[in-house]
Amino acid sequence: MFYNRHPMTNESNTTRREPLIDAKLVQRLAVSDSGFVFDPVSGHSFSVNETGLRILRLLKEGQDLPSAVKALCDEFLGSAADIERDVLEFAGLLRKQFPA
């Protein structure tokens, strides 16, 4: 399956093991159904749209990239390649919310 390729190295059959983002960081977020997200540690808040909200919830469950993409592909109508690219991009945006 395509998402067994490492998205950066394109090496086949190597599955990215580490989660997209530290689940502990995501866990602490207060996420409301409207897509309003508040981080009680940093005091930052941000808004996500419905698909962003869905990804956030999957990440909160600690899902890794392949399983998150798989879940989204089951749930939505869209190409797996597009969904994978968008999830990676979204995780990147999310990581920016947690400066080291």
């Binding site: 930052h44 808040s45 941000f46 808004s47 996500v48 749209n49 419905e50 698909t51 962003g52 869905r54 990804i55 989204l72 749930e75 939505f76 109508l77 869209g78 597009d82 969904i83 968008d86 999830v87 991009e89 979204f90 945006l93 999310l94 919310q97």
Partner: peptide, 13 residues
């Protein structure tokens, strides 16, 4: 009946 995938967005306040 599956919803169409749209690009996820995140907007910092």
């Amino acid at each position: 009946d599956k919803p169409v995938w749209i690009k996820p967005t995140l907007r910092a306040h």
